[in-house]
Design a protein around this nucleic acid. Structure first.
Length: 304
RNA sequence: GCCGCGGUAGCUCAGUGGUAGAGCGUCUCUCUGAAAAAGAGAAAGUCGUCGGUUCAAUUCCGACUCGCGGCA
């Protein structure tokens, strides 16, 4: 009925805490609904970081094309803004082929930037300025911001140095106050969240660690180091990379490394859920069947 | 059996003659180019048990109990 106007393109989003089985679900849905996967993971974008980041293997892809993996060098910093741009392009390409984009990942900020269409101020990081401002204390910074940009000062986290510094960065570059955040959702999304109990997740986290160690995860970190990435930078990647790096430097023992990874991963999964748990757009599914049913309805029946 | 050390928040431990703190964990929460990042707030302890000294004891003294180490 009616003529199709400028309906927003439909995309599927698979999200959930780390270790919950997102990748597999995304592949299954892609196979069923003629999709291609767009990863939304802040670590899997880096080349050479495969085991520790839990990157899907070519076999596991089962022929489904994956985007936004291996798009950056670990030597250089990758940011949300770059993610947004690249992932949007990938989605356009997929749509042009009349296929369905399946965004899949655990980096909530990346998903939000892409799917909610957060407009990020066009000011790239100024590391010199950041370093400089890093020396000041938060109170000072906040006071100054209040003078320069009272509006932003009002809703900023006044104890969060990183945010304060970013505000100055924008002001300095644009010579204007920090713009108000805008969102222009460019797509019509179906959100699928993987529902899993903390207990079950803990089990999976342990199991997964064992498997990764067997796959020579520690050696992978060593390789990254040998390729010229500093220990500091590697530690900055967090989790697997951080703890294996500490172990390789002899700062902790093997057991401490394992415990560290487990504890940190658990923490991460909680933070991820924190981000999503109040989001009413998300359909929480227990298994593939539920996901498939929802997707079917979304893709076919809503054609109207 | 004797000697020594210890028993304080879920865990590891600080500390004080005027009824207690930290780190980690837990629970809420924030998120404007680092997001596996960066931050905010809260709950939580009859200070091993029983007595004594004292105006006042978690802190000093004694007994008991449990744990650890040493000597027999």
């Amino acid at each position: 009925m009616g003529i199709k106007r400028k309906d927003k393109p439909k995309i599927i989003i698979v999200l959930g805490p780390t270790s919950s089985g997102k990748s597999e679900l995304a592949v299954k849905l892609s196979l069923k609904f003629n999709g291609e996967v767009v990863s939304a993971d802040s670590r899997q974008v880096y080349r050479g970081m495969d085991i520790g980041s839990g990157k899907i293997t070519p076999e596991e892809m089962k022929g489904v094309p994956h985007h936004l993996l291996d798009v950056a060098s670990p030597k250089r910093k990758f940011t949300v803004a770059q993610y947004k741009e690249l992932s949007q392009k990938a989605i356009e390409k997929i749509l042009k082929k009349k296929k369905t984009p399946v965004v899949c990942g655990g980096t909530a900020f990346y998903i939000a930037a892409l799917v909610n269409g957060i407009v990020i101020p066009e000011v790239s990081p100024d590391w010199k300025l950041r370093k400089e401002l890093e020396r000041k204390n938060t109170e000072q910074l906040y006071k100054e911001l209040k003078k320069k940009d009272p509006v932003r000062a009002k809703n900023i986290d006044k104890r969060n140095k990183r945010r304060l510094i970013r505000a100055f960065e924008i002001i300095k570059e644009t010579k204007r106050p920090v713009p108000k955040i805008k969102t222009k959702p460019p797509y019509s999304p179906l959100y699928l969240g993987i529902k899993i109990s903390q207990e079950e997740l803990n089990k999976k986290i342990k199991k997964r660690l064992k498997k990764r160690l067997k796959l020579r995860m520690v050696e992978e970190t060593k390789r990254i180091k040998d390729n010229g990435v500093s220990w500091k930078r590697i530690e900055g990647f967090g989790l697997e990379y951080r703890w294996t790096a500490l172990y390789l430097q002899d700062k902790i023992n093997y057991e401490e490394m394992k415990q560290g990874i487990i504890a940190n991963t658990r923490k991460l999964s909680k933070r991820q859920m924190q981000w999503w748990k109040r989001d009413e757009r998300i359909n929480w599914v227990k298994n593939y069947r539920e996901a498939e049913a929802l997707t079917k309805t979304f893709l076919w029946l809503s054609e109207g």
